[in-house]
Nucleic acid binder design. Structure first.
Ligand SMILES: Nc1nc2c(ncn2[C@H]2C[C@H](O)[C@@H](COP(=O)(O)OP(=O)(O)OP(=O)(O)O)O2)c(=O)[nH]1
Ligand SMILES: [Mg+2]
Ligand SMILES: [Mg+2]
Ligand SMILES: [Zn+2]
Length: 571
DNA sequence: GCCGTTTTCGGCCCGACTGTTTTCAGTCG
């Protein structure tokens, strides 16, 4: 949380410096530092307390920003920031956020017309005052109005799964055209971020592809359209960017368009040092193209091993892959089973038999049935009697099943004080216990953390379920110190869940990086409430890859015998 | 403001689209 506060201050200092017309490189340093800190796996305070000089070792943090971090950690404030905030009206930052309006126009409108809020900007545009300004005209004034009007209509970041479905629809349409040689999605979707800002589509072939793309039925309007790219807004409010390149540039373009921006900049710098230039058309030595058809070629020319899209965030992956060129992150094929699922015994839709058949069809060795506990009445949580009945039912089913073993389990509710919603003598009969929070999300950090640690330390708990409670677009993480949870998890051999439901995916790459470094096992659980949810594991795997996890970091890559042994260790 | 396997000074990724412009600035990817 403190890291996020520092990242926010640096981001805003950068934004304000932009409006004030400061050096763009100085601005870049602040923005870069903000991004680095935002994605940093450890508390800066912990680093500082170990040795303040270590802060300077973080890439993107130099002497000056290190001093500012220390100032914020020790005084709670940053004098530079406070001074800058006084120089710029807060409404200017809102103006800056409008599409098509950057720092130069924000400053122009303010200097010339005293515009310091979106409301005032709208008023000035309506009164035709903007068109008189240098570099402005009738069209650009109308564009300002349009930008203000559309601000609310544009969709915020959407869940990965929703973006994937939309992208697949667009790609199916693209592949119907004979002009299109290759087409795929790129951007944050290919890097599998939990949320997607816009959908980026790459195609190879002639530039007429752009016209065909702009005829896609779900388009609300075309925002920009040229010879090599177009930007459209769908009826749903989602933005789609299309980029078209010649076939021989497909690999270079895919590399460019996959990003991230920070990763691109980092590898383009490496190319520079080698006397090369990377752009979306290829790698160039002088005028001559020396690579471009595949991504692999691009990496080879700059002497790097292939780096998977999920890792391309400039969070240390370049250095790391140089040192470990054969590093392999976890993949869907490594997943041996599911450890968190529900049936129609509680709030699931599918029967035990149906869930077992679906798990078997996925090639799983095991499926843990973990229905809810009794305090959760709305989801028909199982009391001790019904759970014992389910245990007998599963024992019976296991005798009939071949190739798949059902594990007897429960998703036990963690009560307000950190105790569990099921007596120990019932839990002791189970193969696996997932413990998770469904109430009292709003406790303050210390209390919430202690509550969850108590659950982690419970001898029968194997997995802490959906540990942050985050829901895309609905609920922020509850106030909890994940690093402390991970220490307790490490101590006790408890796994932490990465809930694979695309609405949740509630651990992000930085948390997983920390878990990996600490040797905490992560369980990739779909929390399936019907058979169709089981394949959601692929989203969890993607996020795990973003956190650099190897198969050995993931609990459900274990074979059944190994898993059983592991689950028994704690008791 | 950051950074250094040619550098502690002098660079900082590279290109497309739009509107306003007679040659390019601003914004965005
Ligand atoms: N070299 C370079 N590439 C960029 C730059 N900005 C964007 N890109 C590339 C990398 C991005 O992943 C890709 C798509 O841009 P987007 O703005 O859509 O970002 P991205 O998809 O990563 O995130 P998003 O979820 O859409 O916010 O274009 C840039 O300034 N320089
Ligand atoms: Mg994007
Ligand atoms: Mg985009
Ligand atoms: Zn559940």
């Amino acid at each position: 949380m403190e890291n996020q506060k520092i990242a926010h201050i640096f981001q805003e200092i950068g934004d304000i410096l932009e409006i004030l017309g400061d050096s763009r490189f100085r601005i870049r340093s602040y923005h870069k530092a903000a991004q680095v800190i935002h994605a940093y796996p450890y508390h800066l305070r912990d680093i500082y307390e170990k040795d303040p000089k270590l802060l300077d070792d973080i890439p993107g943090i130099g002497k000056a920003l290190m001093e500012k971090i220390i100032e914020i950690l020790t005084t709670g404030d940053c004098q530079t920031y406070l001074r800058l905030v006084k120089q710029v009206k807060p409404g200017l930052l809102d103006v800056l956020r409008l599409r098509g309006i950057g720092p130069k126009k924000t400053k122009l409108f303010y200097d010339e017309l005293g515009i310091d809020s979106v409301i005032k900007l709208k008023d000035a545009a309506r009164r035709s005052l903007l068109r008189e300004l240098p570099g402005m005209g009738e069209k650009s004034e109308a564009d300002v109005l349009e930008s203000i009007e559309s601000y609310g209509r544009l969709t915020a970041r959407i869940p990965l799964h929703d973006a994937m479905i939309t992208a697949e629809g667009i790609l199916a349409y693209m592949h119907k055209s004979k002009l299109v040689k290759k087409a795929t999605y790129a951007g944050s979707l290919r890097r599998r971020r939990r949320t997607i800002g816009d959908i980026d589509i790459l195609a190879s072939g002639p530039s007429e592809i752009i016209d065909y793309f702009c005829e896609f039925p779900d388009i609300s309007y075309v925002e920009a359209k040229g010879d090599t790219k177009a930007t459209v807004i769908l009826e749903s409010g989602v933005q789609v960017d299309l980029r078209v390149v010649p076939e021989e540039s497909f690999g270079a373009a895919l590399y460019y368009f996959t990003g991230s921006k920070a990763h691109n900049i980092a590898t383009r710098k490496i190319a520079q040092k080698l006397g090369l230039k990377i752009n979306e058309y290829g790698v160039f030595k002088g005028e001559k193209s020396i690579a471009g058809t595949t991504e692999e070629e691009i990496f080879t020319t700059i002497k790097l091993p292939y780096i998977i899209p999920e890792m391309r965030e400039d969070t240390g992956e370049i250095e790391f892959m140089r040192k470990h060129p054969n590093y392999k992150t976890v993949s869907v094929a490594d997943i041996k089973g599911e450890l968190h699922s529900h049936t129609d015994w509680s709030d699931g839709d599918s029967t035990l038999e149906e869930m077992a058949a679906a798990a078997k069809a996925l090639g799983y060795e095991y499926l843990a049935i973990t229905d809810h506990s009794p305090s959760l009445k709305v989801v028909h949580g199982l009391d001790a009697n019904r759970l014992e009945a389910q245990i007998r039912e599963i024992d019976k089913l296991n005798k009939e099943l071949t190739g798949l073993t059902l594990l007897k389990g429960v998703e036990v509710d963690i009560l307000r004080d950190g105790s569990l919603d099921m007596p120990d003598d019932v839990l002791s009969q189970l193969d696996i216990v997932v413990a998770s929070v469904h109430t009292y999300f709003k406790l303050e950090e210390k209390e919430q953390t202690e509550r969850l640690i108590r659950a982690i330390r419970h001898p029968y708990v194997n997995i802490l379920g959906h540990p942050t409670g985050k829901l895309v677009g609905q609920r922020e993480a509850y106030d909890v110190d994940l690093n402390k949870l991970m220490h307790a998890a490490k101590d006790t051999g408890t796994a932490i869940e990465l809930n694979c439901n695309p609405k949740r995916l509630d651990l992000d790459a930085k948390h997983l990086r920390a878990a990996r470094d600490m040797g905490v096992l992560i369980a990739l659980d779909t929390d399936a409430h019907n058979t169709a949810h089981l394949p959601f594991v692929k989203y969890g795997v993607s996020i795990a890859r973003r956190g650099w996890l190897e198969p050995k970091n993931v609990l459900n890559t274990m074979s059944l015998p190994k898993l059983k042994k592991h689950l028994n260790l704690k008791k």
